[in-house]
Structure formats: structure tokens, C-alpha cells
Amino acid sequence: MMCMDCRSLVPGWIDAELGPAETTEFAAHLSSCRECAEFAGRERDFVRGLRARLPRPDLPDVERRHILSDLRSVAGSRGDLRRLAWGGALALAACIALVATLAVSQARDWTRAYRMDHAAHAGASDGLEFRSGSAIQVAAWLTTAVGMPMHVPTMPDARLLGARTVRLNGRTVALAVYESAGRRLSLFLGNGQELFPARGLAPDQLWTRRGTPYSVVAWIHQGHFHVAVSDLPVQRLQQLARQCQKPAT
């Protein structure tokens, strides 16, 4: 074995990755070549020192919750889609033209990500990262979670349950969750216009999309976008949106 070949095997020797034949040949060379033996020793010391000093930080709890929420949101929404796809395979085959049309409309539908997230958390596992009925406490938690001042509206006809964050279009969006008449309401809050592409909307003007089962009402209030998603009747959702726009008392 040449010295160059020996040195190329040093990582495998340090990491116990060499096969029996390579190990034998490697050891034989080291016993006859002092320079390679010293080189291998230095390399081994370096790797041991490196591994001993290399930090292996665990995920901070807050970040873990956010990432797990992302994971569950992904798996939940994709799982729903997959079940739908399997269950409706024959119908889809018979309606290719219709599906193509729907696909185009869905691609243009910015509310889809919001509705999918709401659907993924509307069941027993709501994914809330912070539970409180106090708008002040929830706003404080969201302010820390998203790194910017957040205001959480109160609605006389809806009960605040808590909050979590969600990743949408590469941005972290604050989400306050309410309950009204036994139905869940997700209120997404933020200031990124790209998350709410309803252009030309006047302040506090409501933008509505009726859907089955989830409808969306969106508006801009004091420079912040609000997107409310629920299976409540649209009129009820609009009524709650108006309550959000009233100044806090």
C-alpha cells in the first residue's frame, strides 16, 4: 500500500468503516510507516476533539411546537386530499374535464391554503399551541411567536380558545381560534399583502368567498389583514367580522 492510499483510508479507520481486508492492509502499512502512523494518530485526535466539542443543540420547545404544527398541517391536509383522491378515483376518471377546470380555479384560489389549514385542525386535535380566553394574553403570546406586535380582536358572539402559528407561502402567520355556536372559527392575522392578494379592498371592506363546507371572509383593519375561515353560515361569519372591526373597549 502506498502512503497516499493509506491516508485516503484514514477516515474509514477512524470511523470503523473499513472492511477486514482493508483494515489488515492499513494496519500493516502503519506498522512500517512512521509518518502515516503519526498522520493517522493526529487525524484520530482531531476527530475525537471535534466530536467532543461539537454542539448538538436540541430543538427549543417553542420552535418544536411550531415545526410539529407544520408537520401535522402538512400530513393532515395531504392526507385529506389523498383520501379524497382514492375515494373518488372513478368519478374523477369520468370527469377529467371538470377536474381540469377545478384545478385551474384552485391554483388561482389563494384561500385554499387557509381552508386546508382550518380543515386539518377543525377536529378533536386542534393543534393549539397556547390556550387562553384572554385576548390580551393571546396577543402577547402571538407577538412573541411571530416577532411583531399583534392585536387579537374580541367578538361578543364568539369565544376565544387560543392560538397557534402556521406557515403559509413561506411566511409565519398568526392564528387565533374561536368558537361560535359550537363551530370553530380560525382567524389568520398578519401584515403581509402577499398572503391576502385581494387588491383594491378599502379598509374594513369585507371580501367574501362562500364555500362548502368552509367559507372565507377577509378584510384589512388598521393595516393588518384578517382572514376568517369557518363552516358557520356566511352571514354569521360576516357579522363576526364586523364585531372584530369595532374598536376595543
Binding site: R42, D45, F46, R48, G49, L50, R53, L54
Partner: peptide
């Protein structure tokens, strides 16, 4: 290098 693992005594884990 000739210094073996001595450099690690001078460096923080984050620097490594």
C-alpha cells in the same frame, strides 16, 4: 496539522 486536538481548547463549540 501538527497541533492535534489542542486547538479545541481555544475555541467555543459555536465557533467550531
Amino acid at each position: 496539522a501538527s497541533e492535534g486536538d489542542v486547538v479545541f481548547e481555544l475555541l467555543e463549540g459555536t465557533e467550531i
